[in-house]
Computed example of a mutant assay.
Amino acid sequence: MNGRGGKRRLAHEINVVPYIDVMLVLLIIFMVTAPLLTTGVEVNLPRAPAEPMDFAEENEPVILTVKRDGSMYLNIGPTPDQPISGEQVRRLTASVLKRRPDAPVAVRGATEGAYGNVVRGMVLLQAAGAGRVGLLTENRPEDEDG
């Protein structure tokens, strides 16, 4: 034999079927978990040309949302989508700041809401031990008016 006849030739192809299966499983996982990652209460934030805050994943911020009617929601605790009392805001925030004193603290106040409600929320956060309280806004490009 001259060397060509009895030998099998190796195929230089990659079987992509298992990779497609893995990709589809990952796609389903991401589609199921993505809505769970967006928690919080919807409010219309004021627009301002502010610098975005960069929160580290391991240092989740404490965010108090104050809606138009003055109801308050805290992104921490057992029910972040339910309104809570001022005492609950103070107690939950104090427990987080006791464990993580460097946790960022911010207030999301609705544009249409009363200024006094936002100030009341800030006072509650400071009473819980927050040394600095930020205000969250929607970022507006510099060339937009009002």
Rank of each mutant, 00 (worst) to 15 (best):
V17T: 14
V62H: 01
V16F: 15
E142K: 07
S95M: 15
F30L: 15
V89A: 12
P104F: 02
D81K: 15
K98I: 02
P49L: 11
A128C: 04
G121R: 00
R47Y: 14
Q88M: 14
G77V: 04
I76P: 10
V22L: 13
M53P: 09
V96N: 00
A11T: 11
E142Y: 08
V25Q: 03
V123A: 11
L136R: 08
K98H: 06
D145F: 14
E51I: 05
I29H: 01
H12D: 13
D21S: 14
G86F: 11
T79Y: 10
P83R: 06
P80S: 10
E144R: 03
G131L: 08
R120V: 08
V89N: 10
A94V: 00
R4I: 09
P83E: 12
L97T: 00
Y115M: 13
A114E: 01
R68L: 12
V43G: 04
V105L: 02
G116Y: 03
R120P: 03
M31D: 06
R8T: 10
M72W: 04
F30C: 14
P80I: 14
I29M: 08
P83K: 08
E57W: 06
A11M: 09
E13C: 06
L92T: 05
D54G: 01
G3W: 05
L45V: 00
V133W: 04
G131Q: 10
Q126L: 06
I28N: 02
G131I: 06
L64V: 12
P61N: 00
T137R: 13
Q126R: 15
G129P: 02
L74V: 04
R108Q: 14
E142I: 09
L26V: 14
T38P: 04
R9N: 09
A128L: 01
G116T: 06
E112C: 05
V43H: 00
I84D: 03
V105W: 00
V62A: 03
G86V: 09
R132I: 11
A50Y: 03
R8Q: 10
I84M: 09
I76R: 13
R132F: 11
P80H: 10
Y73C: 06
R140Q: 15
L136Y: 13
E13M: 07
M53Y: 15
E57Q: 03
Y73W: 04
I76E: 15
L36M: 14
R99T: 12
G3Y: 04
P83G: 12
V41C: 08
G40I: 01
E60S: 09
E51A: 11
V22G: 11
M72V: 07
D54E: 06
V32R: 00
E87G: 07
P49Q: 02
T93H: 06
M72K: 07
M31N: 10
V66I: 15
R140M: 15
G3N: 07
A110R: 01
M31V: 07
L64T: 04
